[in-house]
Design a binder for these strands. Structure first.
Lengths: 274, 274
DNA sequence: CAAATAGTGTCTCTAAGACAATATCAC
DNA sequence: GTGATATTGTCTTAGAGACACTATTTG
């Protein structure tokens, strides 16, 4: 009968078969683009960061940023590290999306991926983000649901357009997973990961939880509403939106002037929603 | 410049440092225990399956069933396999709870765990489950929240009582994780996994989504209500509960008699809630 | 009949959606 | 003034919680 200490001294994990473990991150940002008129408010575009693969497999195709889990870090820390390495920006928040472990999902071998969605504010990218790497680009996102449970994911940057088609499948506990019909030129199973990340992001936005991280500390309520509408892809009446978020924000005494219309009060996220 | 084929032929994943990967499952069951009176309905007990560890580390302590991911299966399939190996019952449903990857969580080394909650019906355990293994037992669960965000998890079976204390910590996106204050004699970080699984189960039960899996195909609405109340640890007025689940169930033409009171109609889960 | 559960009806309150109306700026 | 957004108020409707009431069985 041996002690725990001697057991552990003789224990060798490498006796067992092990997969490689990665974290892949769908990093989202919203860019406010000015309209022609000095009166009108800017229009929002939802953007997703993609990396052009330099090597095999899926060479020259676009993929989510990600990388292998390193010893001494958690999977979440790995995801944060990867996104920071790629953008030089610390994401405001990170959200677990799911584990992708189909044995054949990676032609290199047995690799399971932990998917995360992360939110990056435009402000932080302007301040510290490098936009110089040609292999990393922000793609405009369109994600629409057909009436038969099919989803269309369109990612576009300059003259590049990736169009993926997915089929939503409801698993237990009304969770949905996405089966790839057409990867649209995205590497690995990343089309399905992106779809899952967008669904997770929308689920959070429902409760006004992901939307603040896209904006600077102080914001107008209409800017917050545009973020909400950009993510959810539906529009809300301003009066109702104000009432609904009123519990999550607090006034400041500052205003935004110069818009050719009534100045808007700046708000701040309230620490304690209730 | 080499082709993708030759790249993959020379690619060797074992060049990289890899963790071991496990799935751990919190399997829940509800047992209806008859009261003394012939009139009264049975009382429900929420049960959790624990395994007494036969070897180091944490020898002789209680732990969640689980095991290493095998080549060729997904993490979810691994969780299902582990719970089926242990109980001889195929769980009705399985729910991802989180990934636990703190580097020091397992004294054997670098092991990351994928936690699942699963629901098993009492009926299926009575039919095919072996209850003979002395190292696998169903523990009665009590999980209560203090007013300061501390949680008390009490697991009891016969004369064994495990009492763990945890601190809830709200991470981003109002997800809560649990920090172990006192493991209460549970192995590894399983106290935190169990707390997370119970929280996830309650979250599902809010939408009447996990509760059907505890019951046989046909059930009375009051039995369904007792399941809901057992999981959520709150009581509801019968009239309101009936109205709220009315969209999720459909009538059968069968009745349960012999209860010393008005017979109850049996219901069935409705396939399409809306 | 008594005790217990099964099942229905209805009141109130709140929250969400729709919409009307006013306020305030820059040009 | 005009065109745009900012902001407030109110009407209606749907759903949740509370509660009163009826129905039905078995010892």
């Amino acid at each position: 009968m041996d002690s725990e200490q001697s057991f552990l001294a003789n224990y060798n994990l490498s006796d067992y078969d092990r997969p490689s473990v990665t974290a892949d991150v769908a990093a989202f940002m919203i860019r406010a683009e000015n309209t022609g008129s000095y009166r009108k408010n800017p229009e929002n575009k939802l953007l997703l960061l993609l990396i052009r693969r330099g090597g095999h497999p899926f060479k020259d195709m676009w993929a989510l940023p990600g990388g292998f889990l390193q010893r001494g870090e958690t999977v979440e820390q790995c995801a944060l590290r990867e996104i920071e390495e790629e953008t030089n920006v610390k994401p405001v928040s990170i959200l677990p999306v799911g584990v992708f472990s189909q044995p054949d999902r990676d032609p290199r071998g047995w690799i399971i991926s932990h998917a995360y969605a992360s939110v990056i504010s435009e402000e932080s990218v302007r301040q510290t983000g490098r936009d110089d790497a040609a292999d990393a680009q922000w793609f405009a996102v369109s994600f629409t649901c057909g009436d038969d449970g099919s989803y269309h994911l369109t990612l576009s940057y300059a003259d590049i357009t990736l169009h993926a088609v997915l089929q939503a499948e409801t698993t237990h506990f009304r969770r949905t997973s996405f089966r790839i019909i057409d990867s649209g030129g995205l590497a690995f199973d990343h089309a399905a990961i992106i779809a899952a990340a967008l669904s997770a992001l929308r689920e959070e936005a429902k409760h006004y939880d992901a939307i603040f991280d896209f904006l600077p500390e102080k914001f107008t309520l209409s800017a917050l509403q545009r973020v909400q509408e950009t993510i959810m892809n539906v529009s809300v009446l301003p009066a109702n939106f104000r009432r609904m978020v009123s519990g999550y924000v607090e006034e400041t005494d500052e205003y935004v002037r110069g818009g050719g219309h009534r100045p808007a009060k700046l708000y701040r996220r309230k620490a304690e929603p209730l």
